[in-house]
Design a binder for these strands. Structure first.
Lengths: 192, 192
DNA sequence: AAAAAAAACTAACATTTGTTAGTTTGCTTG
DNA sequence: CAAGCAAACTAACAAATGTTAGTTTTTTTT
């Protein structure tokens, strides 16, 4: 665990501001002021405003990709894989709620890396779609519209960054478990 | 159904651009150019950039508030109320996908009306929370963490603006119905 | 203590931004 | 045809923006 560089501090502070106001609304002077320095001083550590955004988003996107690959390799049922995906999102989001806001809302302001990000994202969706489709085939998952199931799960997981900060009394374990229950079993009380 | 004024055209075009890039990244010159006119000409129709955002967001927020009020007055079960809420979101979002992006992502750039918006939103959440809590009390809804159920449903509904444009082959009726199924019953195949 | 490296500073730049003032154009209506 | 109005235009503004150049201060290493 090596100590945080000045560049990391800048990136973390930026992520916080980007979450509150969005990338475009945060100026380099805002960021500098939040760091207690002048705008020009930021450039001793970073190349451009653009680079900050890239660092925030791409590292997170790659973390998700890598996490999902591991889950895919495991030899488990579809439902269990989905539960692992829930854990993956809860864990990454818990550790970086600020960055997740940029990932969700500011990716369009990536320049050179925009296409790379979009590719990672569509691959991710495709893999998750495949997990669900397998579950349907194996009779683990209901034979409803796959796109809707995918959409519902992903929307919930992608919004975690908004809710986790509000209720940090729930630890990631418990949150993952309860979230899986709701996503997988729904909310209705089955009357047998 | 009276015909769209020039101001409405500007607001609709703005909403489209705001969805793509976010409020702060869209300049009055961008907007003018999308309308085929010069930036200064916009000011014959609108008071400020700010006013455009306000019109987009507040009208939608009030539509949701009003819609939920009607649902609350109806004398139906909690699950049925939730199904009606799903319909409400699907219908409003289908009619204004662009505006929904601003509602979700650009509300923080509202100035005078920011607090009013936040109040509408928290009231909305509170009413929905109450519907769920009633359902739990009546044994319609499982006795799980209410915040998590609320969060899961709302996240999905609030993300609809991202998905509806991608699959407009589903009409609002069908989409609402299938979405309700997934949200209420979950995705797992119950083995009785 | 000297040297090297890291991190801050001041000053300035070229653009871009939202907006205003004043004017012109083209349609509609009396 | 004249008057009135809606909607466009040109020109300009002050402020804000990302970034660079060059310099000074502070911290770390030798």
């Amino acid at each position: 665990m090596k100590t945080e560089t000045r560049k990391d501090e800048i990136i973390n502070t930026a992520a916080k501001l980007f979450k509150e106001r969005g990338y475009s609304a945060v100026t380099m002077r805002d960021l500098a002021s939040a760091m207690g320095i002048k705008a020009a001083s930021l450039y001793n550590h970073i190349k451009s405003k653009q680079e900050i955004l890239k660092e925030i988003i791409i590292s997170l996107a790659e973390e998700f990709t890598q996490g999902l690959e591991l889950i895919q390799q495991s030899n488990t049922s579809s439902i269990e894989k989905i539960e692992e995906v829930v854990k993956l999102h809860v864990n990454i989001t818990s550790q970086n709620t600020y960055g997740m806001a940029s990932l969700n809302n500011d990716w369009m302001h990536l320049e050179e890396r925009r296409d790379y990000y979009l590719k990672l994202r569509s691959n991710y969706e495709e893999e998750l779609r495949h997990i669900i489709a397998e579950g349907v085939k194996n009779d683990e998952i209901i034979d409803e519209n796959i796109e809707i199931m995918l959409f519902s799960i992903l929307s919930t997981l992608r919004s975690l960054y908004l809710w986790i900060p509000k209720k940090d009394y729930l630890n990631p374990e418990k949150l993952s478990q309860q979230l899986s229950t709701v996503l997988v079993k729904g909310i209705n009380k089955k009357i047998n």
